[in-house]
């Protein structure tokens, strides 16, 4: 590619037709409760990892829905799997399973298996 001396930034508009759905479909296939999130944020406020870092599980779940796999990779490793969010979630989402599925899903995507 020729260097024109400037770079274009990625569009900020969400294009719902071009979302990378590999990760979200993998999670939903194995943990349908993930769809029930109402973004109340209680998981994030109570999060032990969130107390120490910028980890925001609610935001992450939105990003996964929008197919942001790169950022998910950076963020997911902060979770300590302590289970507080599981106890707090008003919709009974199996959050610990979701985390493990994200980790495994990313691993599978890395290997180009999905």
């Amino acid at each position: 590619m020729r260097n024109f001396g400037f770079t274009t930034t990625k569009s900020r508009t969400i294009d719902y037709e071009k979302i990378d759905t590999r990760l979200i479909s993998y999670i939903l296939q194995n943990e349908p409760s993930f769809n029930a999130c109402l973004s109340c944020g209680s998981c994030t406020a109570i999060c032990s990892a969130g107390n120490l870092t910028s980890f925001n599980i609610r935001k992450l779940s939105l990003q996964i829905r929008l197919g942001d796999i790169e950022n998910t990779k950076l963020e997911i490793d902060k979770c300590m799997l302590c289970g507080k969010c599981l106890l707090e979630c008003p919709r009974g989402i199996n959050t610990r399973n979701v985390i493990m599925l994200i980790k495994k899903g990313l691993n599978i995507i890395d290997k180009n298996e999905i």
Binding site: S39, C40, G41, S42, T44, A45, C47, G50, R58, K59
Partner: peptide, 10 residues
């Protein structure tokens, strides 16, 4: 402890 979900910050 509450997350301000609109600001996406605890």
């Amino acid at each position: 402890k509450v997350e301000d979900t609109l600001a996406a910050r605890p």
